[in-house]
Write a protein that binds this DNA or RNA. Structure first.
Lengths: 224, 224
DNA sequence: TACTGTGAACTAATTCACAGCT
DNA sequence: AGCTGTGAATTAGTTCACAGTA
């Protein structure tokens, strides 16, 4: 395995999902054309992405669904379980705590933290909400190296600092603020307002050109 | 305005947020260096992104905060209100329905739909949950051109088809499935499992190199 | 002096097109 | 015949470095 581009890494989870579906429907072999169609990318893209993972395909035949599924699972680090701590038990934190797709991939929610006394002590999706004071001990006790920040923006940086100090190396943040972290820490941000804003931008353009040529838009899947 | 790259469009909402913060703190002028630091990108990137929006800066001085804020708001299409319909009133749909940051940007949640009879008729964040049967009439009545899909994956494509048929042109989906849409429809997908998976991939690599060089990781902000 | 705007260089990512294998 | 894997070409995105200007 030479070296995977960031763009490839972002697509591997998509291929993995498609392969699970294929495996569930007893499909044994899949071609780059088929896989591409199911994943919403081009066939050349699929081959480029998969080639560096080792020889996975058979020329003239295609890819073995099970073998490829195992290979990607392995490359992505999904052979182990990843304990996850969620900070912020508001609506979003609650939604994430109950999100079934996480567990299927080996992401086990191990704790839900919040500062709100009205929430602390309650149980959400089977997880007792702990007081945020205990962040450090909860991280230590669960061994979590991944944390999700679902707090109000104003609290995010402080929470982030404490998570990093407690040893968390990977953070998924839903707070629309820049998180400053040491270089070894990996932060991904999901900005829901920004997503809608990009849609608004395109929508506005579409409205402006009544029945004209619509700018480059790949289908299926749009420009997700 | 020549033509904005997709990458630039994705960053404009970030600049807009930073500018709002600056405006709130009575800052009148900002340089590309400062804006870059606050947005977590490079200064050259900021200038490249802003230059095509017209002459916004003054050489030797910087950018006028208010004027730039207005300009970006205008370019992104945020001068009008965007009615939004959310399909799926589970935890995630509820979280989105109550998400304050949407309203601040002019995204007004106008309806929440669900098939679950236990949810229909209840009120969430001030929005009555409507039966999903009424999708078409709700889209028509609200004039929504943006919709959010927060349903289980199995229902997403059918919902998507109905939304498109009802005239929705922009869709934000949280369902981890490929949505097939006509070319004129814009789809953005947020795949939460995939986000965690990318973190797991990097985390695994970090663990593998105990005290070694960590691969390219920009700070602040990590590789969000 | 201190900043923006931009040509030019560079790097990353995608797509083409075909050689090579089964 | 039908597929993968990959060099080569292309396109998109970023960064540099500096000319231009208030």
């Amino acid at each position: 395995m030479t070296e995977l581009s960031e763009a490839t890494v972002a697509r591997l989870p998509v291929y993995l999902r498609v392969l699970s579906e294929l495996a569930a429907s007893r499909t044994r072999v899949v071609s780059s054309d088929e896989l591409a169609a199911l994943a919403g990318v081009g066939p050349a893209q699929v081959r480029r992405d998969l080639a560096p993972l080792g020889p996975n395909g058979v020329r003239g035949v295609g890819y073995d669904v099970d073998a490829l599924q195992r290979r990607i699972t392995d490359v992505l680090g999904l052979t182990r379980e990843w304990p996850v701590v969620i900070v912020g038990a508001g609506h979003l934190g609650q939604a994430l705590a109950g999100y079934a797709a996480f567990a299927e991939r080996g992401f086990c929610i191990r704790a839900l933290l919040d500062t709100d006394p009205a929430l602390v002590g309650t149980t959400i999706a089977g997880h007792p909400v702990e007081p945020a004071d205990r962040l450090e001990e909860v991280v230590a006790a669960t061994g979590a190296s991944i944390a999700v920040i679902a707090t109000p923006p104003a609290a995010a940086q402080a929470v982030c600092d404490r998570l990093v100090a407690a040893g968390v190396g990977s953070i998924l943040s839903f707070a629309p603020v820049l998180l400053v972290v040491p270089p070894a820490v990996d932060v991904r941000q999901v900005d829901l307002s920004a997503e809608l804003t990009v849609l608004a931008f395109h929508g506005q353009r579409r409205d402006a050109l009544p029945a004209e040529r619509v700018p480059a838009e790949r289908v299926p899947g749009g420009d997700a």
